[in-house]
């Protein structure tokens, strides 16, 4: 049986590689800058580290951001409904902000806080919109992942510190991005 794939399979790899890039840059930065503590220090502190960790983190954000932008536009191009289109647009905007986090480091204060909070909000809105799109498209299992992730992150806002929300929120966001990439691979295959 010959399996044909549409462009959504190709675009989905950008999401998977973006997650892999960010995880690798995070691990490298954390192993170099041993003063950074999970849940105590915010991730952006890597960007102004005295060690080489700042290069890993900043370049990691720039590369991962560029990949997320492509993934977001791919999401729009292969959208099945308005939820996917809006979610893809939010994701592309989130990718732009992630890229800017690598360029505008924490020592610039307000501009950095603006891009960091905007990135988080855009990705959160994308999770909600794509979950609605997946539910409408009949891909309810993948929609469920978005529902669980968005509600858990929303609860974190009321309880956790900024450092904890950043760390746990990014982990949940990466899990969602991987799940969304898998959905695009699954839905892109035709018999």
């Amino acid at each position: 049986m010959k399996v044909q794939k549409d462009h959504s399979v190709a675009f989905s790899w950008f999401g998977i590689i973006a997650v892999a890039t960010f995880i690798i840059s995070w691990i490298c930065a954390a192993s170099i800058d041993t003063a950074w503590e999970f849940g105590v220090n915010v991730l952006s502190e890597f960007g102004i580290s005295d060690t080489d960790a700042r290069f890993y983190f900043n370049y990691g954000c720039i590369i991962a951001g560029a990949l997320v932008i492509v993934f977001g536009f791919g999401h729009i191009a292969t959208a099945k409904n308005a939820g996917h289109t809006v979610g893809g647009a939010f994701l592309a905007a989130g990718g732009i902000m992630l890229l800017l986090i690598g360029l505008i480091t924490m020592d610039s204060h307000d501009p950095h806080y603006f891009v960091a909070v905007s990135a988080a909000l855009f990705v959160f809105c994308s999770v909600v919109a794509v979950a609605a799109g997946n539910w409408a498209a009949g891909q309810k299992m993948f929609a469920g992942i978005g529902i669980c992730v968005s509600l858990t992150v929303a609860a974190m806002v009321f309880v956790y510190s900024v450092a904890e929300i950043g760390a746990y929120g990014i982990i949940l966001g990466m899990i969602w991005l991987l799940a969304e990439s898998v959905r695009m691979i699954v839905s892109g295959r035709k018999n």
Binding site: K140, A143, G144, I147, C148, L151
Partner: peptide, 18 residues
């Protein structure tokens, strides 16, 4: 199915709130 996902989300929120 939606209620099952909401139940799992409620467990996640309960963990967040300790």
């Amino acid at each position: 199915l939606l209620m099952t996902f909401l139940t799992i989300s409620a467990i996640g929120c309960a963990v967040v709130f300790s």
